[in-house]
Design a protein around this nucleic acid. Structure first.
Length: 425
RNA sequence: GCGAGAUUGGUGAAGUGGUUAACACGGCGGAUUGUGGUUCCGUUAUGCAAGAGUUCGAUCCUCUUAUCUCGCCCCA
């Protein structure tokens, strides 16, 4: 038997309802924020991610799906959303009028990782990018999006952890300071941290094993290395968060895994009782150099992304039920296959008049069809037998009151329109 | 990439080196030939992830592969 590829999953049943609901919520929220929907290709020139995400990041060095197409082009399935959006921004010259571009996306991303709970090789991300402004208020707006999104979904104790990496200058100075600081203690660090020391010293601060060590607590803080401009930006973001009543905590250990971040970096976490711990739900930050690094004009930008699968896992753990069940308006039961023509005629008519209608295609006995009704749970049942067909009638039964009446075919649309209003009231 | 544990029908699962693989739910049919969540009856896996090996005989033992779960790395 052919199985689905490792780290992928199929969506159906309950899951599909949840996803549709979440997508609807995203769409309406982004309308309120006045962000535009963007869609970019699932694969891009490999070089885009090498230059965009960072040549040294783990995502690019060991997690991408790279392939050559039949025209010998080097392509990569996108491991994240920002690089493609920025490429599109540059390629379509959206910077033209010095406009701000605020957009959102939702789609599959690909990383060759070891699958674990809530983590897949093909996974979906919802994200936004706001390009063309360095206003710290924009950072705050972007941060407010996931916060409000989670609140609307019913998550509790949603909290922002925020830090600043400063501009390139501040960051380099800090990196040097860290290297100088940790070098004498290298032997005290865990093996992973020794590797981090070489590759990405900022991540040492994030280590779960060495967390307790004295040298960790006393390590230099990025905040002491921010230049004046970076400091001012950071403080302003904090002020704006306060203004919006968004709960935050400054966490100097947040450094993020992608190379393009500058200034604001943040994660949003929620306390998940089901897991007995706080979980990171999404992350993002400012990337003022990415657009120019990818060949565009100097453009400041900020964004975030959240993983759908982790969100669903956490909603489950919190027992937040979000399925967006749209109840069937009408279920049709033909008494006999002879009545199918007439049934289909009614079915089609009702659908074109805006009702959700389905009927039995299993050739079930009448009795059996009735037994199915509890599972199908329609608002109305239309029963069509020989007599109804002959006289252009149909029997319609209210599934709640269990009362039924015979009406003529011509009346059905008006009849249902009327009844639906009653139900809604 | 490394380590550990799993994989039995549509679903949840019990089970054993040897004839017909429990039990439950669901499905279908019937008791009730045009009106339903109850009850009762019948039926529902030529097969125990895939392949190979050991054996007179394997779902059970061994190996390989695949996938899932958990941990590390990483990410979010």
């Amino acid at each position: 038997m052919i199985q689905r590829p490792k780290g992928t999953y199929d969506v159906y049943g309950n899951m599909s309802k949840k996803i549709l609901y979440i997508r609807k919520l995203m769409t309406s929220l982004m309308e309120k924020y006045n962000y535009e929907y963007f869609r970019t290709p699932l694969f891009e020139a490999s070089e885009l991610f090498h230059r965009g995400v960072g040549e040294t990041s783990d995502i690019v060095t060991k997690e991408t799906y790279d392939f050559k197409d039949r025209g010998d082009r080097n392509l990569t399935l996108r491991p994240e959303g920002t690089a493609g959006i920025v490429r599109s921004y540059i390629e379509n010259k959206m910077y033209g009028n010095g406009n701000i571009v605020k957009c959102w996306y939702f789609g599959p991303m690909y990383r060759y990782e070891r699958p674990q709970a809530g983590r897949y090789r093909e996974f979906y991300q919802f994200g936004v990018e706001a390009m063309g402004s360095s206003d710290p208020a924009l950072d705050a707006e972007v941060i407010s999006i996931p916060v409000n999104f989670y609140k609307l979904l019913g998550l509790k104790d949603v909290k922002v952890k925020i830090n600043s990496l400063g501009d390139l200058e501040s960051r380099l100075k800090y990196k040097d300071a860290l290297l100088a600081y940790f070098r004498p203690y290298l032997d005290d660090l865990c093996d992973d941290c020794k590797e981090r020391f070489e590759k990405n010293p900022l991540r040492i601060l994030d280590c779960k094993i060495d967390n307790h060590l004295d040298i960790m607590q006393k390590a230099p803080k990025i905040t002491d290395y921010l230049n004046e401009e970076s400091q001012k930006h950071f403080e302003a973001v904090i002020q704006y968060l306060k203004a919006m009543d968004i709960e935050y905590e400054i966490d100097p250990n947040i450094v993020r895994g992608l190379d393009y971040y500058t200034h604001t970096v943040f994660e949003v976490e929620a306390n998940v009782e089901g897991f007995g711990k706080t979980c990171v739900l999404c992350g993002g930050g400012r990337y003022d150099n990415l657009v120019s690094n990818l060949g565009g004009p100097d453009t400041k930008a900020v964004g975030f992304a959240l993983g759908l699968e982790r969100l669903l896992t956490i909603l489950d753990a919190e027992k937040i039920d979000i399925d967006d069940d749209n109840q069937l308006d009408v279920y049709m039961i033909p008494m006999d296959s002879k009545q199918k023509e007439y049934a289909l005629k009614i079915l089609n008519e009702l659908r074109m008049n805006g009702f959700n209608v389905d009927m039995d295609y299993m050739g079930r006995s009448f009795k059996s069809n009735l037994k199915q009704l509890d599972r199908i749970n329609p608002k109305f049942i239309i029963i069509i037998g020989e007599e109804e067909e002959r006289n252009n009638l149909l029997t319609i039964k209210n599934n709640q009151t269990k009362t039924e009446e015979k009406i003529s075919y011509n009346q059905i649309v008006d009849y249902l329109d009327d009844k639906m209003k009653d139900i809604e009231d």
